[in-house]
Computed example of a mutant assay.
Amino acid sequence: MGSFVIHIPPISIARELWRLGEPELADRAAKLAVMLAAIEHLEGKARPCARRLPETQLPPALQSTEDERWAALAAMSQQLHARPRGLRALFRRSG
């Protein structure tokens, strides 16, 4: 089976971590760029999330409109598409 990469804006990860009962990790994840993978990275071991919290109780720092989340995704997508593709592009660029 092939491999794939999932790209998601950090604010989306932080919001979901908060909703899954991980408010302490949400603040830290907002500065990172993935749900169970973020917990494993931040705590050093894999484990399930604590629980699911209602989105209506998100702290102000994690609140965003759907348009703001789409804008964050669009900005991230532009950065990804600006990168050189494959090894040939990498070697051409590095000289």
Rank of each mutant, 00 (worst) to 15 (best):
G21Y: 10
G21M: 09
G21I: 01
P23R: 01
P23N: 04
P23E: 00
P23D: 02
E24T: 13
A26D: 01
A26N: 00
D27A: 14
R28N: 00
A29M: 07
A29E: 05
A29H: 00
A29G: 06
A30M: 12
A30D: 07
A30E: 13
K31W: 05
K31T: 12
L32Y: 06
L32T: 07
L32C: 07
A33S: 10
A33F: 09
V34L: 11
M35Q: 09
M35S: 14
M35R: 13
L36C: 08
L36T: 14
L36N: 15
A37I: 03
A37E: 11
A38W: 01
A38E: 11
I39F: 07
E40A: 11
E40F: 03
H41L: 15
H41I: 12
L42G: 00
G44S: 05
G44K: 02
G44D: 12
G44E: 03
G44F: 14
K45G: 04
A46D: 08
A46V: 04
R47P: 05
R47K: 14
R47S: 04
P48I: 05
P48D: 12
C49G: 11
C49P: 09
C49E: 14
C49I: 06
C49W: 06
A50V: 08
A50K: 13
A50D: 06
A50Q: 11
R52Q: 09
L53Q: 14
L53E: 15
P54T: 03
P54Q: 07
P54R: 04
E55I: 08
E55K: 10
T56Y: 04
Q57T: 09
Q57Y: 04
Q57C: 03
Q57L: 06
P59H: 02
P59W: 05
P60T: 10
P60D: 15
A61E: 09
A61P: 03
A61M: 07
L62D: 02
L62Y: 03
Q63D: 06
Q63S: 08
S64E: 10
S64R: 12
S64I: 05
T65G: 08
T65S: 11
T65R: 02
T65F: 07
E66C: 04
E66P: 08
D67R: 10
D67E: 14
D67W: 05
E68M: 04
R69D: 14
R69W: 02
R69M: 14
R69N: 05
R69F: 03
R69P: 01
W70G: 00
W70C: 07
A71Y: 02
A72V: 00
A72T: 03
L73S: 13
L73W: 05
A75T: 12
A75G: 12
S77V: 06
S77A: 12
S77L: 13
Q78K: 14
Q79F: 01
Q79T: 15
Q79E: 15
Q79C: 13
Q79V: 13
L80Y: 04
L80H: 06
H81L: 11
H81C: 13
H81N: 11
H81T: 12
A82S: 15
A82I: 01
A82W: 01
R83F: 04
R83A: 15
